[in-house]
Amino acid sequence: MSLDELTAAMQDTYSGYDDDLSLSLDRETRNELALLETALEPESTDELVRRAIHLLFQSTVETGRMDFHLRSGFDVTYDEYLSGMTFDDMTGANSYPSLDEERRYRF
């Protein structure tokens, strides 16, 4: 997989979200959500879900798990995704011509 395939997969996933996401919660998650809502008193439960997604995303990036999964699935890192270029593109490694072994030492 490549950076282009990652970008396409991201766009497909993003467009698949409706404005209203419905979630089914198990008993433990409902209990934790109720406690968080009671303690933090957000304007709505949706605000807690947004915060939770931000925290999960941040911890996944900071611990390197995002890079691990992106490298495994798409052969890119999060930094490469953000820049829109792979490391080889950034360093120019992809711009060298291929070597012609027969004419390698001819001038």
Score class of each variant (00 low, 15 high):
residue 6 L to K: 01
residue 71 R to M: 13
residue 53 I to S: 02
residue 107 F to P: 05
residue 88 D to L: 12
residue 80 E to L: 05
residue 15 S to P: 05
residue 56 L to T: 07
residue 44 S to R: 11
residue 11 Q to K: 14
residue 68 F to M: 13
residue 4 D to N: 08
residue 4 D to F: 01
residue 51 R to W: 03
residue 16 G to R: 02
residue 68 F to L: 11
residue 54 H to P: 00
residue 50 R to K: 14
residue 3 L to Q: 03
residue 90 M to L: 13
residue 61 V to W: 00
residue 68 F to E: 15
residue 99 L to M: 09
residue 6 L to H: 00
residue 41 E to F: 10
residue 37 E to D: 06
residue 2 S to Q: 04
residue 32 E to N: 10
residue 17 Y to F: 15
residue 55 L to Q: 04
residue 45 T to G: 08
residue 95 S to F: 01
residue 14 Y to R: 15
residue 14 Y to D: 10
residue 34 A to F: 06
residue 25 L to D: 03
residue 95 S to T: 14
residue 59 S to Q: 08
residue 95 S to V: 11
residue 90 M to Y: 07
residue 19 D to E: 13
residue 9 A to K: 09
residue 31 N to M: 12
residue 6 L to M: 11
residue 24 S to N: 11
residue 63 T to R: 02
residue 66 M to D: 00
residue 23 L to M: 07
residue 100 D to H: 05
residue 2 S to R: 09
residue 6 L to N: 01
residue 42 P to H: 03
residue 32 E to D: 11
residue 44 S to W: 05
residue 20 D to A: 15
residue 89 D to F: 06
residue 36 L to R: 06
residue 24 S to E: 11
residue 7 T to Q: 13
residue 77 T to N: 01
residue 65 R to Q: 10
residue 51 R to Q: 05
residue 16 G to I: 08
residue 60 T to D: 02
residue 51 R to K: 11
residue 74 F to G: 05
residue 29 T to W: 06
residue 80 E to A: 07
residue 30 R to T: 10
residue 46 D to N: 15
residue 105 Y to C: 04
residue 83 S to W: 02
residue 7 T to M: 04
residue 68 F to W: 06
residue 78 Y to P: 00
residue 16 G to S: 08
residue 37 E to F: 00
residue 72 S to T: 12
residue 8 A to N: 10
residue 15 S to T: 11
residue 76 V to T: 04
residue 38 T to S: 14
residue 36 L to T: 09
residue 2 S to G: 08
residue 77 T to I: 11
residue 20 D to R: 09
residue 97 P to W: 02
residue 49 V to C: 04
residue 6 L to G: 01
residue 86 T to E: 05
residue 20 D to T: 15
residue 26 D to W: 03
residue 82 L to G: 02
residue 69 H to K: 09
residue 90 M to T: 11
residue 15 S to I: 10
residue 10 M to A: 14
residue 103 R to D: 06
residue 22 S to P: 00
residue 47 E to G: 01
residue 94 N to H: 06
residue 71 R to I: 13
residue 81 Y to F: 14
residue 88 D to K: 13
residue 11 Q to T: 10
residue 93 A to I: 08
residue 18 D to Y: 04
residue 85 M to W: 03
residue 69 H to G: 09
residue 39 A to D: 14
residue 85 M to N: 10
residue 61 V to E: 01
residue 15 S to R: 15
residue 63 T to P: 00
residue 69 H to I: 12
residue 92 G to E: 08
residue 29 T to N: 02
residue 27 R to C: 07
residue 23 L to D: 03
residue 2 S to D: 07
residue 44 S to C: 05
residue 105 Y to G: 02
residue 97 P to E: 12
residue 59 S to I: 06
residue 65 R to E: 13
residue 12 D to A: 12
residue 35 L to K: 15
residue 5 E to I: 08
residue 7 T to L: 03
residue 66 M to W: 01
residue 34 A to V: 08
residue 105 Y to R: 08
residue 28 E to V: 10
residue 91 T to Q: 10
residue 103 R to S: 15
residue 13 T to C: 15
residue 84 G to V: 06
residue 24 S to T: 13
residue 8 A to D: 12
residue 80 E to W: 00
residue 106 R to G: 01
residue 20 D to C: 14
residue 38 T to K: 13
residue 46 D to P: 01
residue 102 E to M: 09
residue 21 L to G: 02
